[in-house]
Design a protein around this nucleic acid. Structure first.
Lengths: 246, 246
DNA sequence: TTAGTTAGTGTAGTTTTTACAATAAGCAAA
DNA sequence: TTTGCTTATTGTAAAAACTACACTAACTAA
């Protein structure tokens, strides 16, 4: 066992997206600063889930560790999308106060590596390092701490880009899902509406999507066929097309 | 004027691609270690163009600075694609020797942010920080120093990905270019061949490509029409399609 | 003048995309 | 049991895009 020495200049921030019946959410962590004298709240706001890396860790491992601490899950869809190191990224007054209160040097230049990950919105602990954790609809995300708004916006951009070109919508749904749910994921994230019949024609061409011997249960209408996604078959059959979208 | 204090844990590496009549090249910098005792060469190999950032700089600025030092050009196509921070990325014997010879602590964990950029293969200085610089065809790139092979491979992957989905082929050509040249850029980078007539039909739909009142000169055959790319029009007219390639 | 080289163009068959609406299957309430 | 409510599922015709394929045009050099 190696001691987990912390590297104090490199951190990882995870933009954890969760989807729940028509809304795309992000997991946010509460940051509350209390005056050590009188235990009064100085301020309280929200951050992404992030942490410094350990000296023996790779970046991917650090991101996976954060994800695991929050969800207890090991193999979560995770993608590095961009790094952030603006000299002033931690220089707002609240951020400086916070860093000092944590025993960190507020002048230290810190680079953070952004990851985004995809979950169905459940299976998260509601506490992380003694701090409250909650899902927030992406439309309601404002005023995050540090430069986390920028990181969040870039993550969303990267997610949309990826969703257009690769089939990752599945990652936001349970293992078994209906085509209507899948369509809603696309509509929600891309902010469009899609024609149901045409969407299904497109899906019919995906050889890595399999109908199960199982139908939706407990709904007050015609139950939908359940499907599942096979990543192996996808990896085998995918091809890159010469495309350049107008 | 601020002093250019160097940050010793964050660096930027640039994978500079250049295209020249049918070959895609990368710009590499020679690294030669001499024994200070007798001035004998200990080893010599190649690296990407990289540098530590200055404390007052953003990552983009550092990458632009490196590009400017090499080319004298200011507005070059530049894209951050991935960061690298494996704990062992600088641990090979030659790398350790080199770092020590440069007065650096060989145990220091350094994160490097990868950028790739696109040029027509000309307008580079052949020296950079007193070191030789040269273009090398991508097929001949082997055994770079540090983890630069990995960075190079990831850059190439990112470039291909981007080329398929966005019109960046132009960035590798002079301002005025022929459609045959453009087609060759695609064929070279994607490693395919394309039908000339079909390629031109596709190009004809790009509203941001303009034929000039000018033809190719000094060629021993029918001179080709010259075209130019208008980035503003592209930005205005581009749309993201719902695509996910099979 | 001729030979050599690359530029430039059209068409028919096939596939993909688009727009659009009626029936089927389950549950709940009467 | 019947009726109503809700969502699932499916096809078609017209337009657009893609594919495969070969000849003529324009220039230079010999």
């Amino acid at each position: 066992m190696t001691a987990n020495t912390t590297n104090n200049t490199i951190s990882v921030d995870c933009v954890i997206f969760g989807y729940d019946s028509g809304t795309l959410n992000v997991l946010l962590v509460e940051r509350m600063l209390k005056d050590p004298q009188n235990d009064q709240e100085v301020f309280s706001d929200l951050t992404l889930a992030g942490n410094h890396i350990y000296e023996h860790e790779t970046l991917d491992e650090a991101a996976q560790r954060i994800l695991f601490d929050l969800t207890g899950l090991k193999s979560i869809y995770l993608e590095q999308f961009k790094s952030f190191a603006h000299p002033d990224r931690l220089k707002r007054p609240n951020d400086q106060l916070w860093l000092s209160s944590q025993g960190r040097n507020p002048d230290q230049r810190i680079i953070t590596v952004g990851y985004y990950s995809l979950l169905a919105s459940h299976d998260i602990t509601l506490e992380w390092k003694g701090r409250n954790v909650k899902w927030q609809a992406i439309a309601d995300v404002t005023d995050l701490a540090f430069d986390h708004m920028e990181i969040f916006h870039e993550a969303l951009k990267a997610l949309r880009q990826k969703l257009i070109h690769e089939p990752i919508g599945f990652e936001l749904l349970p293992t078994k899902f209906t085509l209507t749910q899948l369509q809603q994921v696309y509509e929600t994230i891309l902010g469009t509406t899609l024609d149901k019949r045409n969407f299904r024609k497109k899906v019919a061409k995906m050889k890595y999507l399999f109908p199960l011997d199982e139908k939706q249960k407990g709904v007050a209408h015609k139950p939908a066929q359940l499907y599942t996604f096979n990543r192996d078959i996808y990896e085998q059959t995918k091809k890159e097309l010469f495309d350049f979208n107008i």
